[in-house]
Computed example of a mutant assay.
Amino acid sequence: MSSETDHEVCGMSVAIDVVGGKWKLHLMWALEAGPQRFGRLRKLLTGVSEKVLAENLRQLEAGGVVHREVFAEIPPRVEYSLTPLGEELRLALRPLEQWGDRHRRRLLDNLASAG
Rank of each mutant, 00 (worst) to 15 (best):
Q59S: 15
R77I: 07
R40S: 14
A62V: 11
R58F: 10
R90L: 11
F38Q: 04
L107G: 11
S2H: 12
L25P: 03
E32S: 09
V78C: 00
E79K: 00
H7E: 10
W23Y: 15
K22C: 04
V18K: 04
L45M: 14
L25I: 14
G11N: 05
S113A: 14
R104W: 08
Q98S: 08
N56V: 04
L41R: 01
A112M: 10
S3R: 13
L96A: 15
V9M: 07
R104F: 11
M28Q: 05
E8H: 03
W29Q: 15
E4I: 01
L53R: 01
L31H: 01
K24H: 04
D17Q: 09
L60R: 07
A54Q: 14
A54C: 06
A62R: 14
G21E: 06
G63T: 00
W99T: 12
I16R: 04
K51I: 11
R102E: 13
C10K: 00
K24M: 07
W99D: 11
G11R: 06
S81P: 02
G20R: 06
P76N: 04
S3V: 12
A54T: 13
L85Q: 07
R106M: 10
D6N: 08
V9K: 10
R77S: 02
R94K: 09
L91Q: 12
V78L: 00
P84F: 02
C10M: 09
R104V: 09
L31F: 05
A15D: 07
L45V: 08
L108P: 03
H67T: 15
A72I: 06
P35E: 15
